[in-house]
């Protein structure tokens, strides 16, 4: 019957894990700037169609680096 103790313990433990995650994220400064990351995630690894002439393999190589 004492399974309720186990369940309570587990549920509180899980809650505490999430709470610890919250504290960790605040401490890391994730709540300091709530705007920039939303922009930053949109421009990763943009590959430009910089040179319309595809016969320039050197340039292509540079861009993919």
């Amino acid at each position: 019957m004492s399974v309720i103790y186990l369940l309570l313990a587990i549920s509180i433990l899980i809650a505490l894990v999430f709470f610890a995650a919250f504290v960790f994220s605040v401490r890391k400064g994730q709540y300091d700037d709530s705007y920039t990351p939303s922009v930053r995630m949109l421009f990763e690894d943009e590959l430009l169609p910089r040179d319309p002439e595809p016969e320039n393999p050197d340039h292509q190589q540079n861009n993919t680096n």
Binding site: I12, A15, F19, F22, V26, Y31
Partner: peptide, 22 residues
């Protein structure tokens, strides 16, 4: 220094609020 006390306080209160409600 960034003052994060309010966020912690809010987090603690929200955490307790939810669990106590259950």
């Amino acid at each position: 220094k960034a003052d994060r006390k309010l966020i912690y306080q809010l987090g603690v209160a929200g955490f307790a609020f939810g669990n106590i409600m259950f």
